[in-house]
Design a protein around this nucleic acid. Structure first.
Lengths: 345, 345
DNA sequence: ATTAGCACTCTGATCTCGTGAGCGCTAACT
DNA sequence: AGTTAGCGCTCACGAGATCAGAGTGCTAAT
């Protein structure tokens, strides 16, 4: 059904999209005709446009204006028409340098990455922190804070550090704390964090009664200090780029967009959508389900260390964006970012 | 020189500011006259206004408009006229609940605090993370990551955790790493982090030659893993509130503002200005030195644990804001925030 | 199937004009 | 000396009115 378009219609659609993305102005028949160097007249182009408009690939903002791609038009462009995404040399160089120099810790690495995504795409860039459950435990440290609090620091592979303060009703002597700490490390090192709780529960059943009290305390500490599922941090940079787009000169529009972006929830919901393995995902305008972001498109992909996909990153920008450029960028950066993480196993 | 204003002029200025802040419309003589319930006529008020305008406390956007406070007018209002800042009961309750429930770790505590500042002021709220040097070391842990990297986790009092990955040229055997780790903890626990480097240097000179190699490695690790000075994190929330202010409907204006806010540097520079001990600092419009933020006012104060002031928090909003309300809020929250941190000594 | 030609439509810029808010000034009043 | 009524003046703002330009759709000829 998609493929009804005749070759010349495809050509015209391609020109309309790429021109509109560049110029921001509705594209008229004369503009397209120029590409054909007098082989075709504007009138002919108008006919083709008419066909495209009937099939809902393009539309007119108003009667006497040129044409603008619809979501369906963009979609067709991305799926069938756009040139192979490619990464420019200066991008390669810049990213390489960045990952050579700014490797302080994972948080900064992630923040820099979202900044790079943003700067190079000239749109908003983001990186979702990995889900705790998908990481592998390297080490855990318990420290007592004040009288009634413990600080638990979880260190996982790839340099991720997660810390959590928990309330203590009862006092635990510091030697016991030390023992528990040692035990947890012995028991859990190298384990996928998502399996830790279950593992401890099983262990608990097997252990002899005299040790149950200590085990209970240990389990209590672990359970409490485990970050709640679904609360994933997000590094988001460059929302001002969105504001700079002429289509967001409309105050009401940008006001709403910023409000929902800052609230994070609905945006994070969008990202939770399961990614197609290793593929770049492109959501154009109405294709996603958050009304306030309907004026935007979302380019995302998963990043991975070794075989494991552990998180999502991408770019958010106006529907009118250079898809080939941004798709190439997101793909490239996700690989390099993964590689950077892999150094820290 | 400030005090030249006669009593009635002060009254009129006060009314102009408080009315303008509420209504956003330039305030006319008739509006003020109404407050006097027919004791004074608009004409009289106009005379007083004339005096105020001559002395630059108020101005007219254009000839036939009402009056709007100038920066000087706001300043006078804040210093001499505004009612005592007070904190509403619902704010007290809300903040108390917040700090009872969301105490996962310092990062979230800080982020929630900036969110609270933002929500309750209906403006942008922020908290600058404490300077590393001002914290007291509780514990340090060294973990090796991959082949050539070490992860160092610094845990300080009040639950602050700072981690850093460093490159290792030479391999260090894991027993030696363990020894160094133990040594560092023994040597440095309870010390102000700002003094750590110096302390190690002095120690190094005293130690016998056979131990120097180990000491050198230890110092190397510490020096590399110390966060660079001046790079302080910032939690910033609620920039959308700024966008919602009618005075920022101007696209160009808000575009610029957001750009500088996102770059962070110039904004952080503003905040680096030494705070007057424990006082709330109010910077109105042109009083600070960052051109792109001239349309905004900045209310800041330091937060402290015990006697030590360790960081800054505050609110950024349009010049036209309810100063008494925001000042009260910032003051209140900074205290509560400090108290929350003190639980985690 | 293509195209020249023409009438038609709609936007956006520019201008004018009327309205209303608010002021300053002056002269009279207390 | 302070206050006020009265009046004329100024200016922003919104509603029409007008006009040029861009781009279309349709028709008839190629």
């Amino acid at each position: 059904m998609e493929e009804l378009l005749k070759e010349r219609q495809r050509e015209v659609l391609k020109m309309i999209v790429s021109t509109y993305v560049r110029t921001i102005n509705p594209v008229g028949s004369r503009t397209i005709a120029k590409f054909y160097q007098d082989e075709l007249s504007p009138a002919t182009i108008r006919n083709e446009m008419h066909g495209l408009e009937e099939r809902d690939y393009i539309q007119q903002p108003h009667t006497s204006a040129g044409r603008v791609p619809t979501d369906k038009g963009y979609r067709y462009y991305v799926d069938h028409l756009m040139p192979e995404p490619r990464v420019l040399p200066y991008v390669v160089a810049l990213v390489a340098r960045e990952y050579r120099e700014h490797m302080d810790n994972v948080e900064t690495l992630i923040e820099r990455t979202s900044k790079i995504l943003s700067t190079l795409s000239e749109q908003a860039g983001f990186v979702v922190f990995p889900a705790f459950e998908n990481l592998v435990l390297k080490r855990v440290e318990i420290t007592s804070l004040g009288r009634h609090h413990l600080l638990i620091v979880w260190v996982s592979d790839n340099g991720f550090v997660q810390n959590q303060v928990i309330d203590m009703k009862e006092d635990i002597p510091s030697e016991e704390l030390l023992r528990i700490n040692r035990f947890l490390n012995q028991e859990l090192q190298g384990m996928l964090l998502g399996q830790v709780k279950l593992h401890l529960a099983q262990k608990f059943d097997q252990v002899q009664d005299s040790l149950k009290t200590v085990y209970r305390t240990a389990r209590g500490i672990v359970n409490q200090s485990f970050p709640k599922e679904g609360q994933r941090r997000l590094a988001f940079e460059g929302s001002h780029y969105i504001l700079e787009q002429p289509e967001f000169q409309d105050w009401e529009k940008s006001r709403k967009l910023f409000k929902t972006l800052e609230a994070r929830d609905s945006f994070m919901d969008l990202l939770q959508v399961r990614q197609k393995d290793g593929k770049i995902q492109v959501k154009i305008g109405f294709e996603h389900h958050c009304p306030d972001i309907w004026d935007c498109s979302l380019i995302t992909t998963e990043y991975r260390v070794g075989p494991r996909a552990i998180g999502t990153l991408g770019v958010l920008g106006p529907r009118r964006m250079s898809y080939e450029r941004v798709i190439g960028l997101v793909d490239f950066i996700s690989r390099r970012f993964g590689e950077a993480l892999e150094q820290w196993i």
